[in-house]
Design a binder for these strands. Structure first.
Lengths: 126, 126
DNA sequence: GATCGTAGTTTACCACGGTAAATCTCAGAT
DNA sequence: ATCTGAGATTTACCGTGGTAAACTACGATC
């Protein structure tokens, strides 16, 4: 059941995760802040998301209110696992190595990263 | 120029990276070890890879020898960056956090990971 | 009551990855 | 000379993501 979403679908889901529930119109407006998108495009994608059980809607008056059926963590996790398996053949250090080489990483990020790794190391030894 | 490849295309590229150059037949054989794939499928994908300048071929007698035009590091890097941007909005710690939670990580992997992170931290402070 | 706007529905394309059969071509075997 | 096998090429189909116009329905407003 690996839930894989396209980039626009992901942005739609993000609105739902942020706001709990939203109308198609609301989503169109939020997405359009970044780059213009036709309302019917958003509606089509919501439909496709509903088909694959990633969202559901309920009606009030003439308007649909959508909400997410899958958790953000679920989606991001399967995306990360997918990449890890497909591209890095399971090697987390391979993935992280590449990222550290090619991205500008803020000191805060590095801090968080170190904590994550050390925490996990500790866990393993207790 | 983000080179993005599908999973089978990636497996094809891996053969080329491993072997330097290979015929379509050779690639079919290698891929078929894992799961059977029609020769013509491999040829079609090689064609598509050639169209997008990921591979090139040269002819000897009646046979094409393919080689990679893009480096493995280039492809894996752009895949990782793509995921990072699209799904984790740039947060490496977010990505790594998810992976550490959901994957079994061997002690060796953790070791390498710690080294990576500490090394990078050191770099930043010199 | 005609019109306007907004919601949702239908329909249609395009691109890409993957899948593969069908066909063409030609060198080597019989 | 003919057949066979292996290579390459052509053609075709499906699924998914993305894109959006066209159409329908309906409540509110002039």
């Amino acid at each position: 059941m690996a839930i894989t979403l396209g980039s626009v679908q992901l942005r739609i889901m993000r609105v739902l995760w942020d706001e709990g529930e939203a109308t198609a119109r609301r989503i169109t407006d939020v997405l359009s802040e970044q780059s213009p998108i036709a309302h019917s495009t958003v509606q089509t994608l919501l439909r496709k998301l509903e088909t694959k059980r990633a969202v559901a809607h309920e009606q009030q008056d003439r308007t649909f209110f959508f909400r997410a059926l899958v958790a953000e963590s679920e989606v991001t996790r399967s995306a990360a696992q997918d990449l890890l398996a497909r591209v890095f053949q399971g090697s987390i250090s391979g993935l992280v190595g590449h990222l550290l080489e090619s991205e500008e990483v803020s000191p805060e990020e590095m801090q968080r990263l170190r904590q994550l790794v050390n925490h996990k190391t500790q866990e393993a030894s207790e």
